[in-house]
């Protein structure tokens, strides 16, 4: 294990060095500063905005869904996650298309419509998954009450 770790560290340091070298050879100082700003901003957006929002959403759903079986809540949360991640990739496309692309074959689709349809499909599949889950649950333990599972 020790040897492996040493090799990995050496590879890693070499990578960092090479990356820094390429950066200073190919980019101007103000451009390098731009990259550093982007890296800092990425950390802030993820750690300072997206993650806390996710926590609030999760707590809010658990509080609001007190009376709902936890399995159903988990399925709904899963649906929201899938929809949100797809939206993260598609919303910038919608915006870029609205400000114009370099030629008409870039972003040729109606991404807004497709995203709306996608959310509708996610909602439908989530509902179906919940229904299947509840039916199975009832079948396996007819006596259990809705609040335990």
């Amino acid at each position: 294990m020790k040897i492996t770790r040493v090799i990995l560290i050496v590879i890693g340091l070499a990578g960092l060095f090479l990356g820094a070298l390429i950066m200073v050879q190919k980019e101007r100082p103000d451009q390098i500063l731009g990259v550093i700003v982007w890296i800092g901003a990425a950390i802030i957006v993820h750690d300072g905005i997206l993650s806390p929002l996710l926590l609030l959403l999760d707590v809010w759903m658990r509080r609001a869904g007190r009376r709902i079986p936890f399995g159903v809540l988990a399925i709904v949360q899963g649906g929201v996650v899938v929809g949100a991640i797809m939206s993260m990739l598609v919303l910038p496309e919608i915006y870029k298309k609205s400000i114009g692309t370099k030629n008409p074959t870039i972003l040729p689709l109606d991404y807004g419509l497709n995203l709306a349809l996608f959310w509708a499909a996610v909602a439908l599949l989530t509902a179906a998954a919940c229904a299947i889950y509840l039916r199975r649950r009832r079948a396996s333990s007819p006596a259990s009450s809705a609040s335990i599972d």
Binding site: G15, L16, L18, A20, M23, V35
Partner: peptide, 23 residues
């Protein structure tokens, strides 16, 4: 900044820090 140049440089930064992280 130049996309290709930065994407190229960062690929070594990312893979390098991945190796360190694993170590």
């Amino acid at each position: 900044f130049g996309f290709r140049e930065v994407h190229w440089a960062l690929s070594f930064v990312v893979i390098g820090s991945l190796a360190i992280h694993i170590a």
